[in-house]
């Protein structure tokens, strides 16, 4: 048993030496093979996300189709920027300044009519 252990250890030592003395060309080819294998894992990770992204996109698309028509009413309402333009416009200010005149005119027309 002791002899057997020593025997296998000697064989192991020789086999280990052969591994240590590995030639460059085979090392290069093994490295190339390893890189291809690692690349497969990288591609797999990307592919794993594809269904998730597609699902999320379809959900968003569905929501957009359902919700968009309901938002149409809001589209008629002027945006705050447009309101601001109206408020800032000179003619509006003139209208407010002459508001009393227009009120008098309205009353006068009503009485005349």
């Amino acid at each position: 048993m002791k002899d057997e252990k020593a025997f296998t250890e000697r064989i192991n030592r020789v086999l280990n030496e052969q591994v240590d003395q590995f030639d460059d060309e085979n090392s290069r080819r093994l490295k190339q093979a390893r890189m291809q294998a690692v690349e497969i894992v990288g591609r797999k990770h990307t592919q794993n996300w594809k269904p998730v992204i597609a699902f999320a996109f379809s959900i968003l698309l569905g929501l957009a189709i359902i919700v968009w028509p309901k938002l149409d009413g809001f589209n008629d309402i002027s945006s705050p920027v447009e309101d601001l333009d109206l408020l800032v416009a000179d003619d509006s200010l003139q209208l407010y300044e002459e508001l009393e005149f227009y009120q008098w005119l309205l009353v006068d027309e009503t009485e005349a009519g």
Partner: peptide, 9 residues
């Protein structure tokens, strides 16, 4: 060895 690496990956 290459085939074994690919299969493992």
């Amino acid at each position: 060895v290459q085939e074994a690496m690919m299969t493992l990956a």
